[in-house]
Structures are given as C-alpha cells and as structure tokens.
Design a binder for these strands. Structure first.
Lengths: 206, 206
DNA sequence: GATTTCAGCAAACAGTTGTTTACTCAATGG
DNA sequence: CCATTGAGTAAACAACTGTTTGCTGAAATC
C-alpha cells in the first residue's frame, strides 16, 4: 500500500478544486465578467501564475463551472419523471426536489441564473447548450406520458421549454430567498405548474 | 427668440444622454459589473472627471438606465389589454407588440435581461421593483377580465407572474435572435400563451 | 456690464490588473 | 539512486482603474 502513484495528479486536482471553489465563493457577490483572476488565485491561496497550470482563461474556468453546475440536473429530471401518482402529487414532489437542490447547491444555482444571459459569451453559450440538452431530455420524458398521446413533437417540445424555463426561473428566485420567501415561491410555483398541467390536458394538438 | 435661458440645462442633459448611450452601447458586449467608468466617459467623448457632474456612481447610471428601459412597458401593457377580440387574436397581437418592442429597443431589453439577476445589487433591485409594479398592473388587468370572475386574488396574481416572467424571458430570447430564430421564438411563445390561457379557463379557484 | 455659477478638462494619485520570466523542489519512472 | 517532469512561486512589466484637485470659460443672474 506504500506504493503511491498518482499523488501528483491528486494534488493538482485539489488545487483545481480550490480555484473553482474560490471563484464560486466570490461569485456570490459579483458576476462573472467582473471577476479577476488575481482575485481568484488570492482567494484560493495560490500565486497568480499558478492559475495557468489549470486554465487558459477565466472563461475556461467558467465553462468548467457550468458543466459542474448542470451535471446533476440530468439525473434529477430522470428521478422526478420515474415517480408515479396523482398529477398534483408529482408536482409537489418536483417542486420539493428543486427547492432541496437549490438549498444544497446555492452557489452553483446562483451562478447559472446570473450567467445565463451574462456578459461572457463562452459561459453563456455553455449554459445554453447544457439547457438545450436538458430540454431535449424533458421533451422525451413528456412524450412518453399518456397525456401527450397523438401530439405533434413540436407541441411536446414547446411544453418542455415552458417547464424548463419555469424551473430555472423558480430556482433563480429561490436562490436568493429566505425561509419565508421560499415558502411563498414554492407555493406559487406549485399552482403555476398545476395551471400548466391543466392546459396540457385540454390541449388539442395538430 | 434670442433670449435663451435654460441653454445650460439642455447642454447638461445632452451630456447625460451621451453617457447613458455610451454605456448602453458598451453593454451590448459585456455586462454591467464589468463596465468601467473611464471606459464609459471615453466612449462618450468626455473626460473621466466630468462623469461626477452627472452620476455619483456607475451603479447610479445603471439605475437610471433601468427606469428608462422599463418606463415604456407600462403603456405597452395598458394598450395590449385594451384590445378586444378572440383570445387567440389577443395573444397574436401581444406577441407582435413584444417583438416590435424588442426590435426597437434591443439595447435596453438586453440590458434588463442581463442585469435582472446580475451582480450589481442596486441595478438588480431597481429591476425587481419595476417588474413588481408591472406585475401588479397586469394583475389588475387580469382581474378585470370575465375569465377571472370569482377568483382568489392570489390566483390572479399567480397567473400575472406567469405572464410577466414569460414575457421577459421571451424578450430576452428575442433580443439575441436573427430573423429566422425570431420566427421560431414567437411561434413557440404564441402556443405557450395559448396553453396557459387554456389552463386559465379550466382553473377552479379557491 | 460686472459677478457668480458650474459643466467639463488636464494632471496626478495610489492600486490593481493579466501575463511572462526564471526559479524551486517534490513526485515520478527507469 | 539519479534524471526528468511539472505544479507552484516570486518578481517584474506596462496598462489600466476610480477619484481628487485646481483650473477655464461660457451661461446665468443681478
């Protein structure tokens, strides 16, 4: 067990984490385009030049953050759609899952919400690409539901976009809310989802 | 007519406009928190010190931009709700009004979309306050419609938030779209609004 | 017409920025 | 054990930042 190889890689990855965590921490009070790389390395306890061993750019680090932040979403939706029960119960469950996710990954959520339309093109585009994949996944899940039987694919996709946008916006609102505001937001979100789901059941596609 | 008083104020306001226009122009490629005030004065053709004759802060200028950008919305919604006709026609009209507005005020729309969750607190809060007033206005307009007869005020408000969020998001998407993408976005938006309006008609409040 | 006001300027201020250079020294692999 | 690799450092770089100071000259006031 004394034969340790890969120690070096582990140390490097630890530094990389430190940089990303430092950035994530600083991003709670500012937006990405105002972030300085000296600022990040300072926060991470590293010398400025060391940064270049890990990222070419700050934008490069930003893209890494996007992938990290949105990776967990895919399994989230998969789990949410596997659930079974009354529509209202499914909605309650989905909203609860989102609220939990935000509470556990506040910094990541804030970052995505802020930079979705932010000023740094590579980051913005990475988020768009990831949300696109996400929307496609939701589209497929919705298409498999009995309610969508006989629907145009475009109509299913349209509903998926509505759901995804609503979810992202709810997460963005939750991320900056205290306990009482969180209650209000989730209550409203549940009713909005119920209204949308009502519209779905009465939609005639084609 | 040679007796010119107020010339001074007019010149000052012209410089103020130049500063705001310069900022607005720079904000097409970056976000507000990365904006420098030397950058703004340079773009406006003014010396750095001159800035302080008009604004205390860059944030101060940002808030002024928010008010300018969202001022026109109020008359927009008033006009849209005064219209009469079939629900689908109303939706088509509303979407067209939004698309026109975005085309005519692209920079303002981009600014609001970007800074709604941006990194500069005073700007973010000014947008939130203005959108809140806007949502309240929509709530009242919706409450006056026959469809909302007997509804909880909270339910009406919930629908208003859904509409406003959807409108802002649509505008944000349109602002960075070419002609073909614009067609797709407006087509989707129309269907989404129809689905929501369908949900409204089948909602049982209370 | 003399006096006051005040928008805008030039210059200087101490800090900070991103990037490059030559370096150290521990982990690696033969 | 010895040579190589490469993560992280310290120092220096020109360029830029926001803000203050004293000034100029045209518009405003009396």
């Amino acid at each position: 067990m004394s034969h340790t190889t890969g120690v070096r890689q582990a140390q490097k990855q630890q530094s990389r984490r430190a940089l990303m965590d430092a950035a994530l921490h600083l991003l709670e009070h500012q937006s990405f385009s105002s972030l300085g790389m000296r600022e990040v390395t300072r926060e991470a306890g590293m010398s400025p030049a060391g940064f270049y061993r890990h990222f070419r750019d700050l934008a490069d680090l930003g893209v890494a953050l996007v992938e990290e932040a949105l990776a967990s979403l895919h399994e989230m939706v998969r789990a949410a759609f596997k659930e079974q029960g009354e529509p209202d119960e499914l909605i309650d469950h989905a909203v609860r899952v989102i609220a939990d996710h935000v509470r556990e990954h506040r910094a990541h959520v804030r970052f995505v919400a802020r930079e979705r339309f932010g000023g740094v093109a590579p980051v913005r585009e990475a988020i768009a690409a990831e949300l696109e994949r996400f929307t496609e996944e939701v589209t497929q899940a919705l298409a498999a539901q009995p309610v969508s039987a006989g629907w145009d694919r475009a109509d299913v996709r349209m509903v998926a976009e509505l759901y995804v946008d609503h979810m992202v916006l709810t997460a963005a609102a939750l991320q900056q809310a205290d306990a009482e505001t969180e209650r209000q937001i989730t209550a409203t979100a549940r009713r909005q989802l119920r209204l949308i789901s009502l519209g779905r059941r009465h939609w005639v596609s084609g």
